[in-house]
């Protein structure tokens, strides 16, 4: 946990673009809020691994939204049920269900459909909001955090030093 926190603080303090960090968080949100063993999460994994996004931020997002997704599962079920049984949307769902992607995804499941719709709707707003938050953090909070006792403690720990050493060998980045 400490290690993850250190990584997050480092990422926020790094030169990585806010958009990269925000994308990692948004992808974590998608993977977390929807059932994990679904096909779209394989795509999310591919994007996380192939795009230069921060893995620590992704994991934080995944953890946070998994907990949220678990709590909101009944809500997603009702939303999914309403969407899947809406007569106006029946052709859309039937069409999607009869595609390879639809079958792999299991879109006829109420929780999958409800959570996926919420995740897709929230993807861009979460991404944009996270960009804004990262920028504001860097502008207003970064200096204060770096001087804080928590940051000092983390920097003083053996773990932090080891991490810094590895990061230097890798050339920094994530």
């Amino acid at each position: 946990m400490l290690r993850l926190l250190a990584k997050v603080l480092k990422a926020l303090a790094s030169e990585q673009r806010p958009a990269q960090l925000a994308l990692a968080f948004a992808l974590g949100m998608v993977a977390g809020i929807t059932p994990l063993a679904t096909a779209h999460n394989l795509l999310v994994l591919l994007l996380v691994l192939c795009l230069r996004v921060n893995l620590s931020i992704f994991l934080v997002g995944l953890g946070l939204f998994s907990a949220l997704g678990l709590a909101l599962a009944p809500l997603f079920h009702h939303l999914g049920l309403a969407l899947l049984t809406a007569p106006a949307l029946h052709p859309f769902w039937t069409g999607l269900y009869n595609t390879v992607v639809g079958r792999l995804e299991g879109v006829n499941n109420t929780v999958v459909a409800g959570s996926l719709v919420v995740a897709l709707i929230a993807l861009v707003p979460v991404h944009l909001a996270t960009i804004v938050l990262v920028r504001r953090y860097r502008d207003h909070l970064l200096a204060w955090v770096q001087k804080s006792r928590l940051a000092q403690l983390l920097k003083a720990s053996k773990l932090w030093r080891a991490y810094q050493a590895v990061a230097r060998v890798r050339g920094g980045g994530s």
């Binding site: 063993a37 599962a73 049920l81 769902w93 039937t94 299991g106 006829n108 499941n109 109420t110």
Partner: peptide, 13 residues
């Protein structure tokens, strides 16, 4: 279903 909720019977094309 493994995800909870339930599967809605949609027609096969």
């Amino acid at each position: 279903t493994p995800f909870g909720g339930r599967n809605i019977a949609l027609p096969d094309r």
